[in-house]
Design a protein around this nucleic acid. Structure first.
Lengths: 110, 110
DNA sequence: TCTAATCATCGTAATATTGCGATGAAGCAA
DNA sequence: TTGCTTCATCGCAATATTACGATGATTAGA
C-alpha cells in the first residue's frame, strides 16, 4: 500500500520516525553537512555543490524545512538557508535518547 | 523517478542516509524499542504487540536485519531477535557525530 | 506420519518518493 | 517596462515502500 499505519503507533514513535525520514536521503545529508560547513547559510550554491537539478534541490530543502531542521530567509532574489538550532537540538536529544536506551552489555537470551 | 542518485554522493553520506532510512518507520522504531525493553529477544510477540500482520512484521524485521541492527537466532519453531551491539554502537557514533558537527552558537548570516 | 505452530517468501494493490523539464512568481537593473 | 536572475511549484515518469493474503519451509509434538 505504501501507506504507513501511523495511527497504531504512539506520537513519539511517529515523531522519531519522521525525524529519521527527514534525514533518510543522501542529498539531504549533504545539504545539512554543507550548511554546517558553510555556516553562513547559502542556497543556490547547493545546485552546483550537489549534482542535482534545481527543482530537486528545492524539493529536498522544502522537506528539511517541513521537518523544521532548516529555515530560509529571502535575500533579494536569492534565499538564504540555515539550520534551525532549536529543532536541531531537539532531534539530537530525542535520537540520542533512543540510542542511549540500549545498554550494549545487556546479554541477549539467544 | 523514485530512484536515488547515490553515485553522486560520498560513501559516508549514503551510509548515513541508509542508517536513517532503517529507522525511518514507526513500526521499526517500535520494534527496536520493544527489543530494548524486553532485553530477552522476542519475536512473534511483536505481531501481537504491534497491530500489524505477520508478514509485515517479518518484512520490517528483515530490513532491520539487512541494516545490521538486529540479529535473529532460530529457536525451535520460533525465531529470537535481538539488537546487534556492534552495529548499534556504530550507528550511535556516526549519527551522533553528524549532530555534534553543528555548534548551535554559530550565528547564521541571515 | 500427521498436525499444529511459527516464520519467511511470493505476489499484488495502494501509495510515497525521487528527479526533472516546464512554467510561474518575485525581485533587481537598465 | 523589459530582461535577467533566483527560486518555488506543477506535472509527469520511474521506482520504492508499505501492507497483507496466500503459500511454502521448518520444527515440535501427538
Amino acid at each position: 500500500m505504501g501507506v504507513t499505519k501511523s495511527e497504531i503507533f504512539t506520537d513519539k514513535q511517529n515523531r522519531l520516525a519522521g525525524m529519521m525520514k527527514a534525514l533518510a536521503h543522501p542529498a539531504r545529508i549533504a545539504i545539512i553537512q554543507y550548511l554546517i560547513k558553510a555556516n553562513a547559510c547559502i542556497n543556490g550554491d547547493l545546485v552546483e555543490e550537489l549534482g542535482l537539478a534545481q527543482p530537486t534541490i528545492s524539493q529536498h530543502l522544502n522537506e528539511l524545512k517541513k521537518a523544521g531542521l532548516i529555515q530560509g530567509t529571502i535575500e533579494g532574489t536569492s534565499v538564504c538557508y540555515c539550520i534551525e538550532p532549536k529543532t536541531w537540538a531537539l532531534y539530537q536529544k530525542e535520537i540520542g535518547a533512543l540510542f542511549a536506551a540500549y545498554k550494549g552489555d545487556a546479554n541477549c537470551a539467544c
